[in-house]
């Protein structure tokens, strides 16, 4: 390419940053659950989808579009409770000695859970695509005109991530979680019910995915497999950033958005979703534990 269109370049960068940050919400959920329980939840995309559908039902049948933010909160609460139930039924037993090979068990169970939720959604939602109405009127972020929904999702993500950060740093529960992430044994000896902590952590993790789903529902439309792209980005972000690292998620999210945008502007926009993976491979080759290594305690 001979000439660079600076407006276009700035628009791409902004749109990459916006999307990258929104996907960080997904990644944050994945990494938080991993941090506490050392498992990867493969059904994250399905919780994203459930969050979206819940939001649709809540605001089109009960609250109305003007109360979309309440809808987002309620969908988060709904998915949080669902996550607690799922954790109690399926994940908890693996810490109570009845399961060998935890990683394998967790992977199998959460993949099946994803298959289960997707197909239930196909049966339940029928063949149609749903979309709640947009949350806000169109606006612009610097040079980039964006839809109100994307703007709201962007701001919403910043708010949620800040709240999450404050929760971790300032509250008793948050500190308990940090303790559990650092040393499960230690916190148990300190008299904290780790199983209870696990259950809540799982709920919070999937609720973050649900928030992303609910915020983006009017933007990307709802169908039973709508969570797959968000999940892919989420996983890429945590590998780039380093599993279990919270600052890593933010940086990797922004970086991923940027890389994809730059690839799109200088190369081919249609391959945008592959650039992220190429970047991931490069990171793996150079620094196998991700950019922000989280020191792991063995046993």
């Amino acid at each position: 390419m001979v000439t660079i269109d600076w407006t276009l370049l700035s628009q791409y960068i902004i749109s990459g940053v916006v999307i990258g940050l929104i996907y960080s919400l997904m990644a944050m959920g994945i990494t938080f659950i991993y941090g506490i329980m050392r498992i990867i939840n493969w059904s994250m995309g399905e919780f994203y989808m459930i969050g979206g559908y819940l939001q649709y039902i809540i605001i089109t049948h009960f609250l109305g579009v003007e109360n979309w933010y309440l809808g987002v909160l309620l969908s988060m609460v709904g998915v949080f409770l669902l996550g607690m139930v799922v954790q109690g039924l399926l994940i908890k037993p693996m810490f109570q000695g009845s399961v060998e090979r935890r990683t394998e068990y967790a992977t199998i169970v959460t993949i099946s859970l994803g298959v289960l939720f997707t197909n239930v959604a196909v049966i339940g939602a029928g063949p149609f695509i749903y979309s709640p109405p947009g949350y806000y009127h169109g606006t612009r972020i610097l040079t980039l005109p964006v839809s109100g929904t994307r703007f709201v999702a962007f701001i919403g993500t910043i708010v949620l991530l800040s709240l999450f950060y404050l929760f971790l740093k300032k509250t008793w529960w948050g500190r308990a979680f940090q303790g559990a992430a650092q040393n499960r044994m230690g916190i148990q000896t300190a008299g904290i019910d780790v199983f209870r902590l696990d259950q809540i952590a799982f709920g919070i993790g999937v609720a973050l995915a649900a928030a992303a789903g609910a915020l983006l529902a009017p933007e990307f439309y709802l169908h039973p497999r709508c969570g797959s792209i968000a999940t892919m980005k989420g996983f890429e972000i945590i590998v780039i950033g380093g599993l279990g690292s919270i600052p890593g998620v933010l940086c990797a999210g922004l970086l991923l958005g940027l890389i994809e945008s730059l690839g799109a502007v200088f190369l081919n926009p249609s391959f945008r979703d592959v650039y992220g993976f190429l970047f991931l491979l490069a990171i793996l080759a150079i620094k196998p534990t991700g950019l922000f290594e989280e020191r792991e305690r063995v046993a």
């Binding site: 990867i40 590998v239 979703d273 491979l281 196998p288």
Partner: peptide, 21 residues
């Protein structure tokens, strides 16, 4: 070569992203 040096959990994620790509 890229994934197997790392913790097992990365393998699942990296292969998953590989398949999608």
């Amino acid at each position: 070569m890229l994934c197997l040096r790392m913790r097992a959990i990365y393998l699942a994620i990296a292969t998953w992203a590989f398949a999608e790509s």
